[in-house]
Design a protein around this nucleic acid. Structure first.
Lengths: 334, 334
DNA sequence: TTGTACGCGTTATCAA
DNA sequence: TTGATAACGCGTACAA
């Protein structure tokens, strides 16, 4: 079943059929009705390949997701997906390892898939600096700020990671904690990791808190297991911290389990503060205190910006979404 | 840059270039070398759209995922993705609501995307019976058994949900529980929900346990919040259960929180048993007792079967993967 | 308002 | 071993 068949069936030409299918003007109401009826009856669907070959691009959007163990990206993808679903664009989701180069991956997929636009979830500025110029379609970096980079087709939507981490540490310090350990992302491969670390450091400095970059900080991957392992190592170092800040909820959850396995209770012996505000975190016992990112807003804005660029050629934007410190049950005053 | 340009550049014809690109025989070593060199130099990539138009199909695989709140499908998708990544086929992931018709969705996407094969994560037998005959490419239903259906292009990989649920209930009963409440999936929309419910019922019957289908069972959606809400309703009914079986870990986590909010402790006052064996479940405090599905094996087998069908025309298979009852810390003997 | 005819980049057939 | 050329199904300029 092709538009040719449809043309034959209705007595119109292929051009008219095509016009109806694409909602173009200059079609009589009569023709439109007849053709739509035929489409209905035959269950016809446009052939994407032919369409895309003709138009020199696909009609889909691409999302490159960096790291699969981080639930935060999981829920981000879901929100993006559900926003995109409203529009009818297909979304091609591509998962790569936390340590892979997301930009090179996107470059390759662009050539192969010719997407209308790209979302990149999680990013390393060095990768962008080096290779992003090979990408020509609109792109939104989600969860990291790219305003420093000044590519005309690169937007970004992010939380102010530095500030959020600082607030997190501030709150821990205000609760009376002086010995605080930190589990973060790798400062070299993850921008998010670096920024949150800087925020923590700034807070310590400001409050005159003693903090040893090598003994009190561990940069690991965003997963339950890495949070668990890191906490065990921190404990071995015998730094006797009373609070632990994990820069992802998944890490915090691993950390809490590790503390328990070492005979420490949360929050009685150690306060734990996470980052992300996963839906899950409010169902845990104790409810996880966390820096809640506006994940949904991040998704909505990202989609809006990308579609704006794709459909109306709007220029790149860099937005920051708010965060909320949620002190729940896993932290306490000492 | 097209194969035409490449032909011009190397002095060969487009046919020869195409042969080289597709590793076809009947090309001189000299031509092959020259053309590959030109490809290298120009960074040329075949245009998927043209190729697929010509071949009347795309080169991609499709996954339709039913329900986004169920982390179990999330990890299943990730495993499938990482298996597929090894092969080079692109995977188009499509998320639909838990209550949507996955088969009709697949039918539509087949016409549009012309995938080589399809994974469907989560399924309702009625939908398959009614409309699956419209799908012609190989398909694997993951997590539900389709062996009863007898479509020649429909395989399935699943856990024996009925048996697994029965084992789960058996174990609770063996621990001494007599008053057991159950939170499951909707028996009407989800086959998984129905089977697990049947398994539970069988166990109760076998052990002479009093069980009221209407008061002790609630069929809801697979999410934290639904597990939470259902538990609250169960508590309102004052059935005084000492154990709760949730047929998904996400539900169990919501349930535990609800119990806590109602002053009940796990496992001291109520034992909670989940289903799925999410990675997360072993990091919770208390560690969640659960029926662990072999999610990774399910993914690996699904990919293997689908590729076998797609590449070698192998016939449909129906496999069952093992499950393991993990009694950890959220259940206790009474 | 409608239809004809061309071309998008490939693969595959056929003749050379 | 090669190359010319006809499809594949669609959108669209141009003509009617």
């Amino acid at each position: 079943m092709t538009i040719k068949d449809l043309a034959k069936k209705t007595g119109y030409g292929v051009a008219t059929v095509s016009r109806v299918l694409n909602n173009h003007p200059n079609v009589s109401e009569k023709a439109r009705k007849a053709i739509l009826k035929a489409v209905e009856e035959s269950g016809f669907e446009l052939n994407d390949n032919a369409k895309q070959l003709k138009q020199q691009r696909s009609n889909s959007l691409l999302a490159v997701v960096k790291g699969t163990s981080n639930e935060m990206f999981g829920s981000l993808v879901e929100y993006i997906q559900s926003e995109i679903a409203k529009t009818g664009y297909p979304l091609l989701v591509d998962y790569i390892d936390e340590d892979d180069n997301e930009v090179l991956r996107a470059v390759r997929l662009c050539r192969e898939k010719k997407p209308l636009g790209i979302f990149i979830l999680g990013g390393n500025m060095e990768h962008f600096e080096k290779d992003f110029d090979k990408i020509e379609v609109p792109c939104v970096l989600v969860s990291s700020d790219a305003s420093k980079l000044d590519f005309k087709n690169l937007s970004s939507v992010s939380t102010d990671d530095r500030l959020a981490a600082k607030c997190a540490m501030d709150s821990l310090i205000e609760l009376g904690h002086k010995r605080i350990a930190i589990i973060g992302g790798d400062r070299n491969t993850s921008d998010t990791g670096r920024l949150r670390f800087e925020g923590c450091l700034a807070s310590c400095l400001e409050h005159g808190i003693d903090f040893d970059k090598d003994m009190d900080y561990l940069g690991v991957r965003f997963s339950y297991q890495d949070g668990y392992d890191a906490t065990c190592r921190l404990l071995e170092n015998k730094r006797n911290f009373t609070a632990l800040f994990a820069s992802a909820d998944v890490m915090a959850i691993g950390a809490i389990r590790a503390l328990n396995d070492n005979g420490l209770r949360v929050p009685e012996d150690v306060s734990v503060l996470g980052f992300d505000g996963l839906v899950l975190s409010s169902f845990l016992v104790p409810k996880l205190s966390t820096v809640e990112q506006s994940v949904k807003k991040m998704a909505v804005q990202s989609v809006k910006i990308l579609l704006g660029s794709v459909e109306n050629g709007e220029s790149a934007k860099h937005e920051t979404v708010p965060f909320v410190l949620r002190l729940r049950e896993s932290t306490r005053k000492i």
